[in-house]
Design a protein around this nucleic acid. Sequence first.
DNA 1: CTTGACCTTCCCATGGGGTCAAGGTCGATT
DNA 2: AATCGACCTTGACCCCATGGGAAGGTCAAG
Lengths: 138, 138
Amino acid sequence: MNIGQAAKHSGLSAKMIRYYESIGLLKPASRSDSGYRLYSNDDLHTLAFIKRSRDLGFSLEEVGKLLTLWQDRQRASSDVKALARQHIDALNQKITELTSLRDTLQDLVENCQGDHRPDCPILKDLESACCLNRAKAL
Amino acid sequence: MNIGQAAKHSGLSAKMIRYYESIGLLKPASRSDSGYRLYSNDDLHTLAFIKRSRDLGFSLEEVGKLLTLWQDRQRASSDVKALARQHIDALNQKITELTSLRDTLQDLVENCQGDHRPDCPILKDLESACCLNRAKAL
DNA sequence: CTTGACCTTCCCATGGGGTCAAGGTCGATT
DNA sequence: AATCGACCTTGACCCCATGGGAAGGTCAAG
């Protein structure tokens, strides 16, 4: 199976598959006589694993670790759990930050009349460097 | 005032100030005889505006629009409000996505024993391309 | 034989910065 | 006057993860 088919089946782009190979996330694919990359069903399985991990928000570095754990029959599930927990923590932090930003903006929007008069509390807030106690999130 | 001082007062880095100038977000600063950038109190005000907008999560492109609106005395506050609303929507979408990912991972972690036996539902889930109905978030 | 779909490698771009290098300028001390 | 350290200048390259596109090779169908 050529890279285009592998891409379709895995949900990754051909570009990404080549990139993953180039950074060592994937072992170099076998090649046809003419130099085309060839993918087996096992390879497809690995590609799907990567796709799924990426969809769950793991970085490529984390995906690499997960792949190693996946391929290691002696892996301790606690390792995987730790990696997942770490990722959950990062997600939670991001969620907290974004929520705080949203709430601040929401406050500002609610105090903005939104008509055609130029008096706008949103700009007023952005303008006032003195009142940074509203949104310390970042 | 030189760029270092301006950076300290605004909370931006000198590097970022130069970058903002290079992409046209800021008007070119005036220069001393020796070529150093010079910043007035008005400039500081603008830098603080940018810092605050970035802290609220606006992209540089959005910051540019906000700056224009800020400097336009005839601006309609509805324009600003629309921009803020749009940003709130984007934040909400991101929050929803991240929350969904976190919940999926949380489920997986809760079903993982985390001991030293290699049987791990997290890897099982990542492995199974057939069961993509768990986390469709991305 | 030609067409068009596919493949290859290579380079460039994104955003929002960080880091480092080579050199110019400044104020203060020796 | 010389020197030192702190500051400034531009420029280049790094990160992540990916998209876009150029220039050229390969393949199967018409």
